[in-house]
Nucleic acid binder design. Structure first.
Length: 399
DNA sequence: TCTGGGGTCCTGATGCTT
DNA sequence: TCTGAAGCATCAGGACCC
């Protein structure tokens, strides 16, 4: 979607159409989330401090964000995409990859597919404009989609992808930001074409995992299929405060708010439990510090997350006031296996069934095929099977 | 000029387990 | 029973994306 939040505001309030709109917080520390295309010629863009944006574009209308509205429209759009492909991989509220393999028979050639998708977005949202890029890899499609924003449409055939990327600056590589671009330039790489021509082993030695990824992006390789929706790896809540804080009681207040919010979201997600929590603080001199801990047992209530956060708070050095207080949960497990108390008398039958299964596996595949997780700390202890030893299917009773 | 909030992924250090 | 190496998990910090 093009300037998504700003476009939504202009859609819902016709008086904003054709005028420069900035979506973002108005308090002293806010930044611009999205600038409408009317505001961009003034040099205003995402992540710019709001005070500076207003100085650059004094006529801009500042609108506070309405995330619930954006989420509603986003889900309408994602639903519409499901009519085009069974594999829709949302990247954020306003961007998604669709695996269109084999769709030409149904929707026509690539450009026709793109036009139909843009029409569908316009129809389900009541007039929002999207840009579509099509190609043989996700990265090339993404770059193609961004070239003619807003309201763009571009198809790059796979055989032309490398030439299409070659003249672009390395800052267009996915994952190359303000820290990495100077490193690339320092070793003589200014264009994506130069990255594609470089020796992949040298790139890997020079830039690690990043180098390997850049090599494959630049060569338009890695045509991975869309993955579909993905399960989150972490869930957080953080807040930049209007005034810096150093009073522990006040910090705890913010941690409590975050803990409750995360707990609620975790439970909404169908009873996910977190095994890890991390407290993040940002000092007034803009230094980020964090401490994390493992939750035993895993939890999804605000009270449990808060309790862990308070304990973590003691592990900071607290040398200066904080401008941001945040909390995140990670390392998720689903609720059901956690609730299976293997040593609960009511579960004894289950336990015995597992024991006999374990014996059956041992008998068939040898002693080393099975090990028991004996860690008394972990409530979800059970039986682990070393798959390296299995050269035949497991007996059915083990499933 | 004065820096958000939601995330993912990578790296290097360290300690534990096998 | 001891020991070293390898592999893994955890932790803290940082870069990046939208």
């Amino acid at each position: 979607m093009d300037a998504f939040y700003a476009q939504v505001e202009q859609l819902d309030d016709p008086s904003l159409r054709g005028r420069p709109v900035l979506v973002g917080g108005r308090n002293g520390r806010g930044v611009v989330l999205t600038a409408s295309y009317e505001a961009r010629p003034f040099g205003v863009g995402s992540a710019m401090p709001m005070s500076r944006a207003i100085r650059k574009c004094p006529k801009a209308i500042v609108v506070p964000p309405r995330f619930e509205r954006y989420m509603k429209l986003s889900s309408l759009i994602m639903d519409a995409f499901e009519d085009f492909s069974p594999t829709v991989e949302p990247l954020s509220l306003d961007e998604a990859f669709l695996d269109m393999t084999g769709a030409e028979g149904i929707f026509g050639p690539p450009l026709a597919i793109g036009r139909k998708m843009k029409d569908a977005v316009r129809d389900v949202t009541g007039g929002l404009v999207a840009s579509v890029g099509l190609s043989g890899t996700k990265y090339v499609a993404k770059v193609a989609g961004a070239i003619y924003k807003p309201d763009g449409l571009l198809y790059v055939p796979q055989e032309e992808a490398r030439a299409f990327l070659a003249p672009l600056h390395v800052s267009k590589l996915w994952g190359a930001g303000p820290a990495t671009v100077p490193r690339l330039e320092a070793v003589g790489l200014r264009t994506i074409g130069q990255v594609a021509d470089a020796d992949p082993r040298w790139l890997s030695d020079t830039l690690g995992a990043m180098g390997r990824r850049f090599a494959s992006l630049a060569r338009a390789e890695n045509p991975r299929r869309g993955k579909g929706s993905r399960r989150g790896r972490s869930m957080g809540s953080e807040r930049t405060l209007a005034v810096d804080v150093s009073d522990p009681a006040e910090i705890k207040l913010h941690l409590r708010r975050s803990a409750d919010a995360i707990g609620q979201r975790l439970r909404k997600k169908g009873g996910m439990l977190a095994r890890g929590v991390r407290v993040k603080l940002k000092t007034s001199s803009f230094r980020s510090v964090s401490r994390q801990a493992t939750l035993r047992p895993a939890a999804n209530t605000g009270a449990a997350l808060y309790q862990a956060a308070v304990e973590l708070l003691d592990r900071f050095e607290h040398t200066e006031p904080y401008r941001l207080v945040g909390l995140a949960a990670f390392d998720f497990v689903s609720e059901r296996p956690q609730q299976l108390e293997l040593f609960d008398p009511d579960r004894l039958a289950e336990r015995l069934r597992l024991e006999s299964t374990m014996d059956a596996i041992r008998k068939r595949f040898g002693r080393d095929a099975v090990k028991r997780a004996e860690d008394q700390e972990r409530p979800n202890r059970g039986i682990a099977v070393n798959l390296d030893h299995l050269d035949a299917p497991l007996p059915e009773t083990s499933t």
